[in-house]
Design a protein around this nucleic acid. Structure first.
Length: 300
RNA sequence: GGUACCAUAGCUCAGUAGGUAGAGCAACGGACUGAAAAUCCGUGUGUCCCUGGUUCGAUUCCGGGUGGUACCA
């Protein structure tokens, strides 16, 4: 295979690790553009609470996949993979390097390694499966899969409703076993990938999370959330921070308590991100406190 | 100042009819291919406030401190 002459520079790391600022500096250096890999910055109604780049930052370097969706839209990783690959093809015509920045591990992986082709599930089927689950509980999902897709049943986390609902809805929609679609083979891309992770000491990252949360509140996060309150059941709004502010708006907790809870939930989210990222052998960790920009540029 | 109640994990608290203790939350570790900022799994980290006494043995019972809360002055 020919050595690819195009390179995707991936900048990832937990929430509040500084991906935005660093990716902009790197993109400026390579005179290129940025693709966001953040599954909540897609939604244009959620700006403050997802810490999207500022207007000045967005103007300094063109960004893609920020605010391209409404919270009412349905979207998924597979479509993201396709959309990004198309965008990359376009960007690589003009640039040798493109930067991708974001902390949604599954979405980053979909672009870097590909994800199996599977049919979209019609909304009414997803809802029907969900209703069955709510009515009959995990046992319904277990026995359904045990009967219809024993292979997936034996490997799936049987106490995780989302995992199991997925297997059920695929079978319901297609009549084919979920396991028959799941090849889990990574795909070669026709561009190189350099993946960097921003590493902080845990207690410093926690401080950054705390002060960023306070800053977001000052910027009017609560007002942003009030407008979205009627839509709080939408998946896009099942998101750290918005959830807690909805609880405050419903009168379930004080604002002070809600903000405190946002901070701990954000810490827990960062922890989950780290768990995901740690197992990636292709990820090169850079010390976020030293000079990560120079290091990323040198190693690209 | 007096009376009553309380003091146990990082926090809120349960418990031990005397044999050194456990829940929730947090914390920590992990899983995860179309909801992923989602969803799920695992782990107890402790001078049981201090100090005398009774006892084979006290976090538990008794006395005295200290701190807190409430009421009365």
């Amino acid at each position: 295979m020919d050595k690819p002459d195009k390179t995707l520079i991936v900048i990832t790391g937990p929430t509040a690790s500084g991906k935005t600022d660093i990716s902009i500096e790197v993109a400026k250096h390579f005179d290129t553009e940025i693709i966001s890999a953040d599954s909540r910055q897609f939604y244009r109604e959620m700006k403050i609470g997802t810490a999207v780049p500022s207007a000045e930052q967005l103007q300094a370097v063109p960004h893609h996949f920020i605010g391209q969706l409404s919270v009412h839209d349905a979207y998924n990783v597979s479509r993201y993979e396709q959309d990004v690959l198309e965008k990359l093809e376009e960007l690589f015509r003009e640039h040798d390097y493109v930067v991708m920045a974001g902390g949604s591990g599954l979405y980053v992986d979909a672009v870097c390694k590909g994800i199996d082709d599977m049919p979209d599930i019609p909304r009414h089927i997803r809802e029907a499966v969900d209703n069955k689950y709510r009515e009959h509980g995990l046992d319904y999902l277990r026995s359904y899969l045990e009967k219809n897709d024993p292979e997936y049943y034996s490997s799936v986390d049987q106490s995780n409703p989302n995992r199991m609902k997925r297997g059920v809805e695929v079978f319901e929609a297609t009549g084919r076993r979920f396991s028959s679609f799941r090849k889990q083979q990574s795909r070669e891309r026709d561009f190189s990938i350099k993946k960097f992770g921003l590493l902080w000491e845990r207690h410093i990252l926690n401080e950054r999370i705390n002060s960023r949360t306070d800053k977001m509140m000052q910027q009017g996060w609560l007002e942003e959330t009030k407008v979205l309150y009627p839509y709080r059941h939408l998946n896009a709004l099942n998101t750290v921070g918005y959830k807690e502010l909805f609880s405050y708006l419903s009168g379930d907790m004080s604002l002070e308590k809600a903000v405190e809870k946002i901070k701990t939930q954000t810490r827990r989210y960062a922890k989950r991100q780290m768990t995901w990222l740690r197992k990636d052998p292709d990820l090169l960790w850079v010390d976020a406190e030293m000079n990560p920009i120079r290091e990323i540029i040198e190693k690209t």
